[in-house]
Write a protein that binds this DNA or RNA. Structure first.
Lengths: 344, 344
DNA sequence: CTGTTAGCGCATTCAA
DNA sequence: TTGAATGCGCTAACAG
């Protein structure tokens, strides 16, 4: 159906090798070059990347496996990731794990079958089991956003614990002593953030009564329900730390529907900006992640690995494998107006 | 590096054909089947889809080209699209056009080089120029969300005009006579929605002063600034139609920051739900698009076309090409509390 | 049911 | 600089 280099050969009278050389940027006589270019236009020729990949054994595509593609955080990262990778000449094949570890496993095998040159994974869970196949096959992998405690692959993430520590410190700095935490314990980022919160509370000598610690799913529902319960407490907290974007969403809804107002009756600070902070009134105080840098560093590390694998295949004498990297970027606090001094 | 069927041949002593038959679900002796399965496990064999694709001339991947991947609407659709396509055995290769028609063109050529079996395109602009290459190459294309007035490809979208008509009718039904429209004229959906608004205003004999028609980009900024300007009018509108998600976002921000309150001072209804409607207080009244159906119908049409192309290649006598389809799904209005009766 | 053979479209030796 | 030959890993006839 589509034109091949053989068609170009017929039209130009040149050999396959010459045409191939043209396609790959070799030197040839200007007249031959012109002939080929004309033929390509006329025939609407397009290189068949499958055939090329079969020969070169690189597909020039990167597999990206995300825990949930409908998640706003995921999309934003995907956007930066894609443009960066594209600049480097790579295609992106994205697979959605829908928060299902089994599907995640399938996705990875699937992409391996597609012979992707590398894998960026935003993992669903805490177990590194899904890493076995790509590692065995020697496919470079970079973990993004969430680490799984496996030192065989690189990882790029933010300082969840420290940033959360600072956030709670900030609440305390405004005089709050009854502070609640709504978070997720189903994902590693949630656990790290919780850790930071607890450390800050301890340092401030603030007790965290069980009723003020709401751990659950990474979901709007969890945020909504938790906030409702907190506000219904006989002695409700005066400030709340919200562990992720979905929880923020739900919690803000709950506050809006209640008789409480923010920040007069209740102060809140959230982790992950995205949209709400701009929308809510007052603007939310949030911990924002450096999304662009997260994506850029991920691509940098991945391409490094790929480059390394290539040189290893070429020369047998390995020029030292790149060291394992766990890159921890700084999330920073941006104050809106959702945290106010505790009322006496 | 990775194992091939020749390695399996060596281990099992069977021929390539037998192994290939196994991989493609043919019948073979149980003992041979067992041998192959063992070898596959031992060698961590994985079919090389590039090689397979080269022979079968199908890649079992669908290219998806979106106008902006950081857009929440896009992500939601992508999520449904991906899971549907995956169920059908297809991989998805997503490319982001970043609202740039040139990049869109590049993306399409790029995916054609990857030999995708079909293309789902959420177009950037109004010109159908980008359709030439895939149509010439005989690659099935389905347009999603936005049509470009080209009857050579199928399209799935919602009844933007009618739904907007209903939305404005609803405002009028609440007694509003000073109604403003904030929309986008840079994309076709925006134009269609505007059309519906104007028709409704006309039917209601409501004049639309120039100051109350805010046309601009599909952006948060446009929504924000337009709403600010509307509220600053000597005689501000009592109700506003907001043409898309980004505009809603910006407009709600502007209202929140103003001394106006919704719906007491100003009623609003928006097009595209997504997140805000849940977040804002009161809940927004919105026109919601049937995202899941949009994705499902798109996949259905695309697979139909692909199936057809395959049978055409097999039998020379074409069994009638599927007719051109422009599928228009119904968006429905969900009332929140952001529209109130006009105060006397 | 199994084995043999011949390409798919291209890059890459090696000669010329 | 160019051309002829070889093979990437697999499927699809065909023959056994």
């Amino acid at each position: 159906m589509a034109a091949t280099i053989r068609d170009i050969k017929k039209v130009t009278g040149l050999s396959l090798a010459t045409i191939s050389k043209y396609l790959n940027g070799g030197n040839l006589l200007p007249e031959n070059r012109a002939k080929i270019e004309k033929a390509i236009k006329d025939l609407h020729y397009e290189v068949n990347e499958m055939a090329r990949g079969l020969v070169t054994s690189q597909s020039m595509t990167i597999g990206v496996v995300v825990f949930d593609i409908s998640n706003v955080f995921t999309c934003s990262v995907l956007s930066f990731l894609g443009s960066r990778l594209r600049e480097a000449g790579y295609a992106v094949m994205t697979c959605d794990s829908q928060n299902d570890p089994q599907l995640e496993m399938d996705n990875i095998r699937f992409l391996m079958g597609k012979k992707v040159d590398g894998l960026v994974i935003m993992p669903v869970g805490l177990s590194p089991a899904f890493l076995e196949p790509p590692i065995k096959a020697g496919i470079p992998v970079v973990l993004l956003d969430r680490s799984v405690g496996d030192s065989r692959v690189d990882c790029v993430k933010v300082n969840n614990s420290e940033a959360s520590y600072e956030a709670v410190k900030l609440l305390a700095g405004y005089g709050h002593r009854k502070i609640a935490v709504v978070g997720s314990d189903t994902v590693v980022t949630g656990r790290e953030r919780l850790e930071g919160c607890l450390a800050a509370l301890k340092d401030e000598n603030i007790a965290l009564p069980p009723a003020c610690l709401k751990l659950g799913a990474h979901s709007i529902e969890h945020g909504y329900q938790s906030m409702q319960e907190l506000l219904a407490l006989p002695d409700p907290p005066t400030a709340v730390f919200l562990g992720n974007f979905e929880i923020i969403l739900g919690a803000v809804m709950a506050i809006n529907e209640s008789s409480f107002s923010c920040p007069d009756d209740i102060s809140v600070i959230g982790f992950d900006d995205l949209i709400v902070s701009k929308l809510s009134n007052p603007r939310l105080s949030v911990v924002v992640q450096p999304l662009r840098s997260l994506a850029e560093e991920t691509v940098r590390l991945l391409l490094n690995r790929i480059e390394y694998e290539k040189t290893v295949e070429a020369d047998a004498d390995a020029p030292d494998a790149p060291a394992h990297v766990e890159l921890v970027l700084k999330a920073r606090i941006v104050e809106g107006g959702s945290v106010a001094r505790r009322r006496e």
